[in-house]
Design a protein around this nucleic acid. Structure first.
Lengths: 171, 171
DNA sequence: GGCATATGATTGACGCATCAACATTGACGC
DNA sequence: GCGTCAATGTTGATGCGTCAATCATATGCC
């Protein structure tokens, strides 16, 4: 009567060791620190927050540099409400524009302004260099590969579906 | 010429490969997802946010279950202003109490209430189980060790100081 | 057509984090 | 004591993220 695939997994009843817990906490702390450092650097270099960067990245890769609001939300994995609030602030700063959608009167289309495109393209190189400096340069190629392996394991545990989760994203 | 400590490192002038960039983005996305999942689980199981949990953890381990405000801030690595705001909200909920410090009239002492201690102790086990379920159970012991190695490399790159403070000038 | 329901998008309220003042008090030199 | 400076802790303003509620429109069913 087993109805699903992962019901019978033994999942090693033992408790976590304290060193496993330490690895967990270090993972959270270290990634938080990296996000903080790179976010501050990005803001200082370009005046863009990491959230701004994500939005502008998706828009700059879109055909015609414009996207429906909900497509944009799906691409960057945000809730629509969050996106709407953030687009308000970005519109006020002149980074993006909004028009009514031609094919669906409910929808709205978000477009990259020239100012937004300029800001984004000025932000890209310093940001990539900062990632390299603080992340890639710290690791050997073997360590990068080991980390990729760990992340694959975590992802496939989070999302048992066989669909590949790591979509390709270009700078 | 350069003032920082790692001048002699060749720092491989080459750019990042796209797979290195993908590993970086996956690291950020995956840890964000884990934080989100575990935070939501914690809140649902115990009514405590991750921030509450950190504060209560530090207090519950302190001698007499009380700490000076700035010590607490140092232990959990928060800015004092953030802590002050958060303690206001936790005090309103009856999780902690505040008294004037006896030895320093500027200071304030934060103490764990019985309610706070109960909430925290009820939160601990489910939280540890959730970490095990979503993190530890996804990895082999070898992967955990490889991740620990990667985190050590990242940390020592972020903080060039050797882990042990070797020398300290005393007046 | 006409009505119920679903969907796209926005808004307001609230909790939270950061930043820049601010008030108070301790420490040290004189 | 007095003056300066550092440290402790708080507050207000502002931006951000989440939740529930809302509005307008599209879709489907009869």
């Amino acid at each position: 009567m087993s109805d699903d695939g992962h019901a019978a997994t033994p999942v090693a009843g033992r408790r976590m060791t304290s060193s496993e817990l330490t690895v967990w906490r270090t993972l959270i702390d270290t990634t938080a620190e990296l996000r903080r450092i790179l976010g501050a650097q990005l803001l200082q270099d370009s005046g863009l927050s990491p959230a701004d960067y994500q939005v502008l990245l998706a828009l700059s890769e879109a055909a015609g540099r414009r996207l429906r609001s909900s497509e944009l939300a799906a691409i960057i994995g945000w809730e629509r409400s969050r996106l709407s609030h953030h687009l308000n602030r970005m519109e006020r700063r002149g980074l993006i524009g909004r028009n009514h959608c031609a094919t669906d009167s409910r929808g709205s289309e978000v477009s990259l302004t020239d100012d937004g495109a300029r800001m984004f393209s000025g932000a890209t190189l310093p940001h990539l260099r900062a990632i390299k400096r603080h992340f890639t340069d710290a690791l050997t190629p073997e360590q990068v590969e080991a980390l990729a392996d760990v992340l694959r394991a975590l992802q496939s545990h989070l999302h048992p579906e066989p669909t590949t989760r790591v979509e390709e994203k270009r700078p």
